[in-house]
Design a protein around this nucleic acid. Structure first.
Lengths: 221, 221
DNA sequence: CTGGTAATTCATCGAGCGTTGAGATACGCT
DNA sequence: AGCGTATCTCAACGCTCGATGAATTACCAG
């Protein structure tokens, strides 16, 4: 990207006009510092679109309009920045979790609603996408994510539904949900991405219910 | 992985004992050369497990027991090697495609059988995994893969089934199938991976049929 | 036997990476 | 006003990567 050109569709965090004839000087900038937040925002954007390995700290720093050394100063290392960038979901996750526990809806619809709502928040969606992208080529991360899904989502749901073959059903339904979310995230032009949240829930619930409750063939152990 | 342990399921291509006290000399080795094949094999392994960016040509060359410069000599560049490594599927794909066209089975079961059979061949599975991994962070590749799926798999199937909302249904069913295959590929210990091909087909078919044929909610356009 | 071609290693280049330390500037407390 | 601290730029290090070109050895057709 040519210097000075601004990539479209991205928050203008911290890339303050830097106007006037004065070229960038060293030292602290005037006014309150939003730099750490700006770095986090652009890091999430890069990590979620290109993955960890293909994203350079220099590109993030360029996006945020700061020096690469600031990343080390705020987050210690590239890994530290990644960890901070994907730590976001846990905060907005809580309201959805609360609703998941207290809502009066039928269990499967509750799960679908919570899930779609999670992906509705852009930062959370980017963080989840980055996590999945990384889990895709790191076996340990993948196993950890699977265990998380099983413990936090599957265990209560399956227990409430009381079905057989919980792990098999859970892996199928989680795969189905993840595939839909990823297609919406990475192919914004596809038909799935043009559905609203409510339509999406309506579309997903029947299949999820089928996967979770329909009788399995005899062959499976 | 502990050193000295041999990773399972990998051909011992080209990493010939290189026995004797003679250290590696320059110049052509005696006997017929299997080096290009060895490089391809180990490239598929690395690319499918760690993705394109995280895989270095030096690591592939080490696995194959050759000098990194040989990769440039045989395949031109890293991209050339990747392209060659994922070009494999098209050859073994043909028998499955033929069976797909001529088998007397019901359409959905035919699709599932063909798909599972594709992933049964290790090289094809690695190539497909590498493609999907790369498509995950390259929007152009993802779009191309989606179009491929739609043209080669979805179009005939949907036409034969004659259902409404073909793109929506196709994206859901392809996502479902992909999610199952990827979980089998990347988490060999999970329950899905311990199912045999026939059991897997039996498990997948009902959900696939449900996705492809069950009536959709009114809301969707 | 001989000459050309293919296969292989080696040494090395330039670029980009993450990271570091030093110095400059602004902020906030007393 | 002044001092400590937080923020920020700059220059540069060491490393790894993909790629290149020359030198060396084996194969093969005549």
């Amino acid at each position: 990207m040519p210097p000075g050109a601004s990539r479209p569709g991205l928050a203008q965090h911290g890339v303050a006009p830097r106007s006037g004839p004065d070229q960038p000087k060293a030292g602290r900038r005037p006014g309150p510092s939003t730099t750490a937040q700006a770095i986090l925002t652009h890091a999430r954007d890069r990590f979620s679109r290109h993955g960890y390995a293909k994203t350079s700290l220099r590109s993030i720093a360029d996006d945020a309009g700061v020096d690469p050394a600031l990343i080390a100063h705020f987050f210690g290392s590239k890994r530290g920045l990644f960890d901070a960038a994907i730590q976001v979901p846990l905060t907005p996750e809580l309201p959805a979790m609360v609703e998941f526990q207290t809502s009066a809806k039928e269990p499967v619809e509750r799960l679908a609603t919570m899930y779609v709502k999670l992906w509705e928040t852009p930062e959370v969606a980017q963080a989840l996408a980055a996590i999945i992208l990384e889990a895709a080529h790191d076996a340990a991360a993948a196993r950890a994510m699977a265990r998380f899904m099983y413990t936090w989502v599957g265990e209560p749901l399956v227990r409430e539904l009381g079905v057989d073959h919980p792990e098999l059903r859970l892996r199928m339904v989680v795969g189905f949900m993840g595939a839909i979310a990823l297609q919406r995230q990475f192919d914004a032009d596809c038909m799935l991405a043009q559905l609203g949240p409510d339509q999406l829930v309506e579309l997903m619930v029947p299949t999820m219910r089928f996967i979770l409750t329909s009788p399995l063939p005899q062959g499976v152990p």
